[in-house]
Design a protein around this nucleic acid. Sequence first.
DNA 1: CCCCAGGCAGCGC
DNA 2: GCGCTGCATGGG
Length: 325
Amino acid sequence: MNHFTVATLPLSTALNLHETFFCGQAFRWHALALSTNTAYYAALDGTLVLLYAQSSTLTVYASAPVLQHRPLAEFMHHYLGLTDRLEEVFSPLFRQKYPHLVQGAAPYFGLRLLRQPAFETLISFMCAQGIGIALIRRQVAALARTFGSPLSLSISLSPSGQLTPHFSFAITEYTFPTPECLAEASLSQLQRCTNFHRARAERIRRIARAVADGSLNLAALTAPHATFEHARETLLQYDGIGEKIADCICLFGLGHHEAFPIDTHVRQYLAEWFGLKAPTTSLTPRAYRELAQAARDILGTKYAGLAGQWLFHHWRRDIRKMRDY
DNA sequence: CCCCAGGCAGCGC
DNA sequence: GCGCTGCATGGG
């Protein structure tokens, strides 16, 4: 007997779930190969969600009927960024000036900007310093497995996606830990989730305590309640959050879409494609801010973050020939 | 062995 | 303010 809710959403434009979930903005989605399609699942807000896209329909299965007090379809529509107006991501001027980049990024227009839970985004990106995406994913998975709660979902599907008894499976995932749980974690247990990086474990526990005791109010930093600059400056005061990680949290977790995270890859394509070069070899805070602003001047502020993701993906996948994460 | 991976903080200058 | 180094580990 199945215990789940099903929702279907119309898709007005093509949606590429694989690029969306594995390009480095999210770390907790898993792929599940079906015979004619690939499904993706993750634990979100105490709910196990499994979904897949067909040509013009998104099908969602979930272990609970509502997420964050909203109907499943409405929540997923928001979470997947389906509200973004893709035709506005690259401005007319940008299209005119850089047609080859628009063409190069076109295969990734199905990649959307996720609206992820703030605390999960905060902690996840604090794990994303100077290591590969595979290792980041492993750390985040370890945090959930160690400090989260297990959820299970049992489903029967036919290869075409219709509910039948022919094809069934069960999946288990763990919720992302609460601030209270990480605030009370022992350092030795936390270190096992951070590649035994003791300083990182301490910083994670410290900021989890700040969220738990209310001194860091993430909801109050979320757009449009706070400006991007205020959210950014607030995050930067905490140990373990620098320029790049603050931008990632603002963009993926707090809804500040003018945030433009600059990592080593973004820095490379800014230099290669736009001639934007930092004066120093190491990216100092001042140089970082100037680069990010120059990028916003070129890309506009409304969708700087999503435009950056498309270009980031084009650079890594097509120019640097990086196949997998 | 080397270098790099969606960096950051602490230090000397 | 800027440059260098340690941090941890896995993969090319």
